[in-house]
Write a protein that binds this DNA or RNA. Structure first.
Lengths: 200, 200
DNA sequence: GTCTATAATATGATAGAC
DNA sequence: GTCTATCATATTATAGAC
């Protein structure tokens, strides 16, 4: 028997809620509208969730799950540019993933209003990425692959454009505008950045 | 006699509304709360503004006014690093300006929800900055100051970290955390970037 | 697990006295 | 220009029948 005992309705609620939260934020999404989108009455929804916040928390539960499961940075980082390219491939995949994009929208809307979400973003997303990249750059410096600098600052410089491009992708997609031009930015960033730091 | 006939109450409404919008967004701010903060009744507020949206539009009216009044980029850009440093000084001033910070918060909250605000951000902020920087980088390339590359892409790479640092400043300030460490990032960015592109 | 009914409250906005 | 009073509607949430 399946371990996942989550009912079909509950799954449908989370899915509908995610879409509405991504479009109108927490306050702009009413329990009524979620229920309506699912095709049930408001009261029936309370059979699956304690309240509106519980729905939101479930929707946000894997907002910061990251695919950057780095096993061995010490070794991987020695590959230099290839390591950075690999990181960006993952980042780009996440940026264009439909579900992740919805969660990213929710995060951006609530980031400045929700203290918990804000802390999680800084800890689980920003600091985690910075720590990973810092270590990698440190290794690359020790290996003589790149010029010497503050690894953590370099990590910030490397990460920031990725975030900015991801935000642009999201903004374009909201208005159904093509993202082909934006798509290449990620790879160009790796090339440009590596050209900037590499010791030839 | 003064040209500005805006009443004291109207000014107070805009000020209070700005603070509330910056904290809780458009939907999270009720007309009641604005009136309460001003110290008047809700109905009195409608004597100064047609409706809630009119208040919001007034608050947002100079959200994209920029201090980057570049007279002569063709000449200024030839100064190379000094031009970039000057740009960043302006950007940093805006990032730490109390009023501008509130407007930035509002923008970030509504950016993904309000199509008009989104378009204005892309046109008046992003594209304007990219156009300015692109032209500057183009001049620098022609002058042999920096390595050859796509000027517009380079502009993106230069602008993105500034935006990211500004966002971090804003997030830290919401939680009343010190921004001294962040403060130096802006100058370090200029140094790092110039080191990356300059022809020595 | 869903429905109808209902409660308590919040919201945007208006009417009319002062 | 501000007040009290009021309205229509929307909102979160609960009670109880089926």
């Amino acid at each position: 028997m399946p371990v996942n005992r989550t009912s079909k309705t509950k799954t449908a609620i989370v899915k509908s809620a995610m879409e509405l939260f991504a479009l109108h934020g927490y306050k702009g999404t009413s329990v009524r509208k979620i229920a309506s989108k699912v095709g049930i009455r408001e009261s029936a929804l309370y059979n699956h969730f304690k309240n509106k916040e519980a729905i939101f928390l479930t929707v946000c539960s894997d907002i910061f799950t990251t695919p950057f499961a780095q096993k061995n940075i010490q070794d991987d980082a020695k590959k230099g540019k290839k390591f950075l390219a690999g990181f960006v491939v993952q980042y780009k995949l996440v940026s264009f993933d439909t579900k992740k994009e919805k969660l990213f929208r929710i995060m951006m809307i609530e980031l400045l209003q929700d203290p918990v979400l804000r802390k999680n973003f800084l800890d689980e997303s920003h600091h985690r990425n910075i720590a990973l990249l810092s270590e990698a750059f440190f290794v690359m410096m020790q290996s003589g692959l790149i010029r010497s600098s503050d690894p953590m600052f370099m990590a910030n410089e490397f990460l920031a454009p990725l975030f900015y491009y991801r935000l642009q992708v999201t903004l374009f997609r909201i208005d159904s505008e093509p993202t082909t031009a934006l798509s290449t930015l990620f790879e160009k960033h790796v090339d440009f950045f590596w050209e900037s730091i590499a010791i030839h």
